[in-house]
Simulated scan of single mutants.
Amino acid sequence: MSGRAAEAATTVTSALLREWPLPPPGSGKESRGRTLVVGGSTRTPGAVLLAAEAALRSGAGKLQVATTRTTAAGLAVALPEALVLPLPETPGGGIDASAGEEDGELADLAGQADAVLLGVGAVGEPDVCALLEAVVPPLSTTVVLDALGLAAVTRDETFLHHLDGRAVLTPNATELAIVLGAEPEDVERDTAGAAVELARRSRCAVVAGGGTSWIAAPDGRLWSDPSGGAGLGVSGSGDVQAGIVTGLCARGAEPVQAALWGAYLHGRAGDRLATEVGRLGFLARELPAQVPRVLAEVEV
């Protein structure tokens, strides 16, 4: 990390996004893609709810969720728009790696999805890695990894190379340091450079940061988005951003394009709530409902 990457960044604006418009939505749910969200645990079932709703709010057409058997029924009630697949659990309340069996229903859903998000709300690193190592390698669809899903890339930076760039990583600053094997203070000092380095190593688009989001492409391009403010530093906010990015990928956006739009939509949703609620104190669950409004503002 050179410390100079930020100087080369382009600022994300609505004008920039209008020059790179999202694919036309079409008239039916199938035309806007199938999204699959895989994650959750008995301790953190809400992360999947936040990500899944955010995917729909960003315009995805068909939603599928795979989560722990104990929490699946409650999630199905909270998300009546979704197909919810209950998966076997570990004693610790996470998803058991056996759920990723090659001929299983999860593998079938993942293979048919246009975009798959893995890791939100997941617990138990060995089991999560084993699950991803079973589910992801056969895929040719777009993959988004968040939270503990990034552990697979921490173990093997080539894990997503077979996707030829059809992947997005959405780490927070702590996760970014862990994946790179870097000191947290170094990443905090040069988050832009860290994002560029992870994009280069993983061959994925990367959305990282706190007050300012940094979006890095595998070819070295870099953008910054200062929107959102301190209010986005709240539990569940990252799950919402990962869901937005995944929903945009399902709609047919290129991974780097989805990362740019996702960072902007997430940040501007935070700006809207800062005006309506206050600079601090709005909740992650309030963000998804703002996304269609921000989309409308950009696409005018």
Rank of each mutant, 00 (worst) to 15 (best):
G211D: 15
T212W: 11
T212C: 11
S213A: 15
I215C: 12
I215A: 11
P218I: 06
P218D: 05
D219T: 07
D219E: 13
G220A: 12
R221C: 08
L222Q: 07
W223Y: 14
S224K: 15
S224T: 13
P226G: 05
S227L: 13
S227N: 14
G228M: 04
G228H: 05
G233Y: 07
G233E: 14
V234R: 13
V234M: 08
S235E: 14
S235L: 14
S235K: 15
S235H: 15
G236T: 09
S237G: 09
S237A: 15
S237T: 05
G238L: 04
G238M: 05
G238E: 03
V240I: 09
V240P: 12
I244Q: 02
I244D: 01
I244E: 02
V245C: 08
V245L: 09
T246K: 07
T246Y: 05
G247V: 09
G247L: 04
L248R: 08
L248T: 07
L248Y: 06
A250H: 02
A250P: 00
A250G: 00
R251F: 11
G252E: 10
A253D: 02
A253E: 02
E254Y: 05
E254M: 11
P255R: 10
P255A: 12
P255T: 12
V256G: 04
V256N: 02
V256D: 02
A258L: 01
A258S: 02
A258G: 03
A258R: 01
A258N: 01
A259T: 00
A259D: 01
L260R: 10
L260I: 08
L260N: 02
W261I: 00
G262E: 04
G262F: 03
A263G: 15
A263P: 13
Y264V: 04
L265Y: 06
H266M: 00
H266F: 11
H266D: 00
A269D: 13
A269T: 10
A269S: 15
G270Q: 06
R272V: 13
R272P: 00
R272K: 09
L273C: 02
L273D: 00
L273G: 00
L273Y: 03
A274G: 14
A274D: 02
E276P: 00
E276Q: 13
V277P: 00
G278P: 03
R279M: 07
R279Y: 10
R279W: 06
L280G: 00
L280V: 06
L280M: 10
